[in-house]
Simulated assay, not measured.
Amino acid sequence: MAAQAGKDMLLKLDLNGSGSFESVAGLRSRRFALNAVAADITNADSAGRWRELLAQTGTRSASISGQGVFRDQNADAQIRTLFFSGALATWQVVLPGFGVLEGPFHLAGLEYAGEFNGEVTYELALESAGELTFSETP
């Protein structure tokens, strides 16, 4: 896989549950992480007292964060409404040349900031809230 431009990594939201995704407005940076917590089965009989892990167990999760500027009031209102409702929403992370990660996420954090001589910016943080699917880019 060749190097990819960061601007091509997209964060999309299914705004109305229809399966139609729209890019989150004005994101300048995006980050996502996949995590796996393994089940530790180490015991007094473990060889050499080395830690042992049980395969295919534990908990998997994903987190997504982004920072940017809202381009319009509609985008700001949609994200803010989602935060205050506490509802889960279906999100996609599109990684060019890699694939699409999709599933339910909880909007865990929403921050606003601004300098007196600059634009208002926002940051959001998402935490996975169910099974995620991954489909490779053809």
Rank of each mutant, 00 (worst) to 15 (best):
S20R: 11
D76H: 12
I41E: 12
K12I: 01
G26P: 05
L11G: 05
F116V: 08
S85N: 11
L53K: 11
W91G: 05
A38R: 15
E22H: 06
R60K: 13
R30K: 14
L27M: 11
E52Q: 15
Q56M: 09
V37W: 00
A44E: 13
E22K: 12
T90K: 06
E111F: 04
A25F: 03
A25I: 01
V69M: 11
L54N: 10
F21A: 04
G99M: 01
R51Y: 03
T90P: 00
E52H: 12
W91D: 02
F105C: 07
G109S: 13
L34D: 03
F84L: 14
Q92N: 03
L15I: 10
Y112W: 13
A108V: 08
I64K: 02
R49W: 10
T57W: 03
G19M: 03
I79M: 07
Q78C: 05
R51G: 10
P96T: 07
S65G: 13
V93Y: 00
L95M: 14
E111P: 12
K12P: 04
S85M: 13
T57N: 09
S63Y: 04
G109D: 10
T90M: 00
G99N: 03
V93E: 00
G103A: 05
A62T: 08
S23C: 06
A39S: 15
D72F: 03
L15R: 15
G99K: 00
W50D: 15
S65M: 08
R60P: 02
E111N: 10
A39L: 15
L82T: 08
N35R: 11
A47I: 13
S85F: 08
G103E: 02
A38W: 10
W91H: 11
R71M: 09
S85T: 15
V24C: 01
L15F: 10
R51I: 14
E115K: 10
F70K: 06
F84E: 15
F83C: 10
V100S: 01
G97R: 01
S65K: 06
F70V: 09
A108G: 04
A62F: 04
L15Q: 14
A55Q: 11
I79Y: 05
S46D: 05
V100C: 06
I64C: 01
E111L: 06
S63T: 14
F32M: 14
V94G: 04
I41K: 13
A87H: 07
R80S: 11
L13P: 03
N35L: 14
V93M: 04
R31H: 04
A108M: 08
G103Y: 06
D72C: 08
G48L: 04
S29D: 08
L10V: 09
R60H: 09
R28V: 11
L27H: 00
A36E: 15
G114I: 03
D14A: 10
A36S: 15
R49N: 14
G19Q: 08
V100N: 00
F32N: 07
I41S: 08
G97M: 02
L110T: 12
G58H: 00
F98E: 03
L27S: 05
D40A: 06
D76V: 11
F116T: 15
Y112N: 07
I64D: 04
V37L: 07
P104T: 05
A108C: 07
V24Y: 01
E111C: 00
F83L: 15
N35Y: 04
S46N: 03
L54A: 14
A39M: 14
